[in-house]
Design a protein around this nucleic acid. Structure first.
Length: 105
DNA sequence: GACTTGACTAGAC
DNA sequence: AGTCTAGCCAAGT
């Protein structure tokens, strides 16, 4: 499961108060076509992984089985100082560019 | 190992 | 700007 490990390692680097999109995470781990897989990996994210800093390409919080999860994500982001505009994160302000992963794979 | 599932996306209306 | 559609692909069955 090298993929998931790379995803978690990457997400752990996202600074407080910043966010990244699923597609971005996929690209950063050198697998630009695996955005959906990133979402799947997030379902199981281990402790210590700031999963709430991962949002969809529109800066919104993606739907999931447990709706409460969406709320907690929004709350966590706000607690870090990320302000939502019209229900979404202004990616132009909070997006973390990140750095390509040299890692493992 | 074949088949189904989406915390996804870009593109077309 | 909101909806649909078609590719995608790691994970889970």
């Amino acid at each position: 499961m090298r993929f998931r490990a790379a995803v978690y390692a990457l997400v752990r680097r996202v600074p407080r108060g910043h966010v990244v999109t699923y597609g971005q995470v996929a690209a950063l781990v050198r697998q630009p076509r695996s955005a959906r897989a990133v979402g799947a990996a997030m379902k199981q994210c281990p402790e210590g992984v700031p999963w709430h800093r991962v949002v969809n390409a529109q800066g919104g919080i993606s739907r999931r089985r447990v709706v409460s999860g969406m709320l907690t994500q929004r709350i966590r982001l706000e607690q870090e100082g990320v302000r939502l505009r019209r229900g979404r994160v202004p990616l132009t302000h909070y997006r973390w560019e990140g750095t390509p992963r040299w890692t493992s794979r």
